[in-house]
Amino acid sequence: MWQGVIPAVTTKFNQDDTLDFKEMERCFRYLMDAGCDGLIACGSLGEGPLLSHAERIDVLKLTKEVTGNKPAILTVAEAATRDACALAEKAAKAGADGLMVVPSTIYHTNHRETVATLRSIAAAGDLPVMIYSNRLAYRVDVTTDMLEELADDARFVAVKESSDDIRRTTEIINRLGSRYDLFTGVDNLAFEALTAGATGWVAGLVVAFPHETVAIYRLIKAGRYNEALDIYRWFRPLLDLDVSTYLVQNIKLVEALAIDSNDRVRAPRLPLEGALRTRVEQVVSTSLANRPVLPAFN
Score class of each variant (00 low, 15 high):
92 A>L: 02
93 K>W: 01
96 A>C: 11
98 G>N: 02
99 L>P: 10
99 L>F: 03
99 L>E: 06
100 M>P: 02
100 M>T: 13
100 M>S: 13
104 S>A: 15
104 S>V: 00
106 I>N: 07
107 Y>V: 13
107 Y>G: 07
108 H>F: 12
108 H>K: 15
109 T>Y: 12
111 H>D: 14
113 E>R: 11
114 T>M: 00
114 T>Y: 01
116 A>C: 03
117 T>V: 05
117 T>L: 02
118 L>G: 04
119 R>N: 10
121 I>A: 05
121 I>W: 02
123 A>Q: 15
127 L>F: 08
127 L>W: 09
129 V>Q: 09
137 A>T: 15
137 A>C: 06
139 R>C: 10
142 V>E: 00
142 V>M: 02
144 T>L: 00
145 D>I: 05
147 L>N: 11
148 E>D: 13
148 E>M: 10
149 E>Q: 13
149 E>C: 06
150 L>F: 12
151 A>T: 12
152 D>R: 03
152 D>Y: 14
152 D>C: 09
153 D>I: 08
154 A>R: 14
155 R>N: 14
156 F>G: 12
156 F>Y: 14
159 V>T: 07
160 K>E: 04
160 K>N: 07
160 K>V: 11
161 E>P: 05
161 E>M: 02
162 S>W: 01
162 S>R: 01
164 D>E: 12
164 D>T: 15
164 D>F: 15
165 D>Y: 08
165 D>G: 00
